[in-house]
Design a binder for these strands. Sequence first.
DNA 1: CGAGGTGTTGAGATTTGTCAACCTACGTGG
DNA 2: CCACGTAGGTTGACAAATCTCAACACCTCG
Lengths: 266, 266
Amino acid sequence: MATILSIRPQVGLRLQKAATPAESRDVARPIYAPREMALSASLRGEDLERFESVKFASRVVRQGDHVFNAGDKFSCLYSIRGGCFKTSLPGSQGREQVTGFFMSGDLFGLDGLGGARYNVTAVALEDSTVWIMPYAVITALAREVPSLQCSLDSELSRELARSYGVMTLLGSTSAQERVAGFLLNLSRRHLRRGLSGSSFTLGMTRADIGNYLGITLETVSRTFSAFQAAGLIKVQQRALSILDVEGLERILETVRPKRGARAGCS
Amino acid sequence: MATILSIRPQVGLRLQKAATPAESRDVARPIYAPREMALSASLRGEDLERFESVKFASRVVRQGDHVFNAGDKFSCLYSIRGGCFKTSLPGSQGREQVTGFFMSGDLFGLDGLGGARYNVTAVALEDSTVWIMPYAVITALAREVPSLQCSLDSELSRELARSYGVMTLLGSTSAQERVAGFLLNLSRRHLRRGLSGSSFTLGMTRADIGNYLGITLETVSRTFSAFQAAGLIKVQQRALSILDVEGLERILETVRPKRGARAGCS
DNA sequence: CGAGGTGTTGAGATTTGTCAACCTACGTGG
DNA sequence: CCACGTAGGTTGACAAATCTCAACACCTCG
């Protein structure tokens, strides 16, 4: 157990309480420069320079704070410098559906793009910092730098692809598959950011995960325990280590013969 | 009861036969004119005229035919003139996840936009016709007609919002909620097209529905039967009538607040 | 130290999945 | 025109997974 805690995740550690109000107190956490922003990923040469010449404001968001709420007038996109967020779609009677988790380098707010309003609510899961990118600025810039329009489209379709991935997770009927898929997804995203894919901190509660995956928080907890008992992972509160990636993948790949589509039986 | 069928579509639909000689079973099915296309929905005045001046080719797609496959090079968007489609994300071992159903007036192919390839496969659920809109043409036009760029963004975010809606459906843990939500969604979409929202034909199989909703086809069937027994709907094969919209909505609204996922505010 | 949010675990109730039989509609070919 | 084959749909019985309710443990913060 000590081993887990000794592995210091670079992102996502719970911070000490929010002491002084409205302080731009920078945390010892990787802060993404403009160069690392999702939108600039595919920009080259002078397009990149032009983009980086724009000074975007950044904002510190305290754990639990809402960056925007569903129904708010759409105005800005947000790129995460550090920290993590969840987005959720509010339903009637306080029911809500968590639609995604976002981490450093991710872009969110895209769903408000076409309409005049955001569809989802974005909440910080820990003290975080975001770049604020006014949409008006982005569009103006996109007209000037066509490759930025491409980047924007690219981000949109990436977000679409992401949501398709979630649908696949939710479409599987077993809780184990959903949880395994969820963990592997988180792992890959950490890896892509140059962080450890095998040991990281879960920024969200079991309830968030369960809501996201369409299962109860108890089932999430039990599944974690089962995976741990099977030697696939090690969990202690928010600290997670993936011990056997292939094992998790095997759970997803489990061939569940579909009736009518099976071969060999006559 | 019979009144349902007497509600005629109010929108400017043109009924016309497909002229192709090979058409053995021509159906008197609404064919959407360019004016009804998703992309032109928010265009006005000369922008609309400009858009309509472009002659897009259309293509007849037979039931079961693939318009494009996941992994195909992205090149065109498709707007449905008549008929319906499903899109699905292929998984390993032939497993697939149905990601959406599309009907007349809908736009699909958007998911390939940013990347160079389509993420999903689009299959006709019945003999259908689509407008083929080369992306190159669309982008060129969008530069000329800025409001078209807005329309495009709008469609993208609508698609995103749609997928969030699906996530909400899949996030609910009960099969009844999922099916009720699915039916209400279909109903609304028919209404929005000037068709009857209370009586329509399901273009997809129970297996498709189940895959989409993350439940088995047997559960779909049983749930339909249960709803019918409760007097909420009437089903016979693909023919569906919604007898009690509020009843279905009540199933969704069931005051059983999903636990967890509460935002940090109060 | 206590409070409250969070996480774990147990036991029983329910729902859903699985397997299997059967029914129904529809297209094909005799 | 009808018989037949087949894909799609329904239903039943049972097993298995998940939900629900409830008790308790853990951690952080005040």
